[in-house]
Computed example of a mutant assay.
Amino acid sequence: MLFGPLSTSLAPQVKSSRTLLKWITPIANWYANASGYRKLGFKYDDLLCEENPEVQRALSRLTPREAYDRAYRLKRASQASVVHAPLPKEQWTQPSEDIRYLKPHVLEVMKEEAERKMWDTVAVERK
């Protein structure tokens, strides 16, 4: 079971209710902006813990362009951290650009691992 950004989410239930979506969306936007990761040029999936084996395998499945973009964002944010200043406003990640590019790969790895465990524990019976 994973905790954090890849754990169970209430987003589908919130999105299905128009009233709840109207109330939660401003709070969610405020929280994303207050967390500050967009000011450093990160996308949400850049914050996933790389020590997790599923995330490691998912990172190896990124296209060369996605891997390059991720490395560039990490280096750029590292430089901004060294100078103790956020990036210029035009380099901040916009909410429309902040897509979950790594989560589908991680979920696929988790499904494969569950299937592997299932097949590894199959009891073979002789007829």
Rank of each mutant, 00 (worst) to 15 (best):
A77P: 02
N52A: 06
F42Q: 02
S81D: 02
E50C: 04
A32K: 12
K89G: 01
Y37C: 07
E51P: 00
C49P: 01
P26E: 02
T63K: 05
E54T: 03
V55K: 11
E66D: 06
A58Y: 04
A80F: 11
R18W: 02
Y72D: 09
L74S: 03
N29G: 02
R18V: 02
S78Y: 14
S78N: 13
A34Q: 14
R38M: 10
A85D: 07
Q91D: 14
K111I: 05
Q91H: 09
C49M: 10
I99K: 10
M110T: 05
A67K: 11
E108S: 09
S16D: 09
T93E: 04
V55A: 07
I24Q: 09
E54G: 11
Q56C: 03
R57G: 00
I99R: 07
A28K: 06
V109E: 08
D46I: 09
R70P: 03
Q91W: 12
R18D: 08
L107A: 04
E50S: 11
A71E: 15
F42Y: 15
L59F: 04
P53L: 08
M110A: 15
E51G: 06
A32C: 14
S60T: 07
E51Q: 11
P53G: 07
K22D: 14
A77W: 05
R73W: 05
T93L: 05
K111Y: 04
L74N: 01
K103W: 05
C49A: 14
A32E: 12
N33I: 00
Y101L: 10
L87S: 10
D45T: 03
P64K: 04
P95Q: 03
L47W: 06
L87P: 01
L47E: 09
A67S: 13
L40V: 00
N52I: 13
R73Y: 08
P86Y: 12
L102R: 04
V109W: 05
N52H: 11
R57H: 09
P88G: 02
S35M: 12
K75N: 10
L48I: 14
D45V: 01
Y68E: 13
P86R: 05
T93P: 00
A71W: 01
K43W: 04
L20P: 04
I27Q: 10
I27S: 08
R70T: 03
S78P: 00
K39M: 11
V106N: 12
L87N: 01
Y68G: 02
N33E: 15
W30T: 06
P104T: 06
R61H: 05
Y44V: 14
A77T: 03
P88E: 03
L40S: 06
E51R: 15
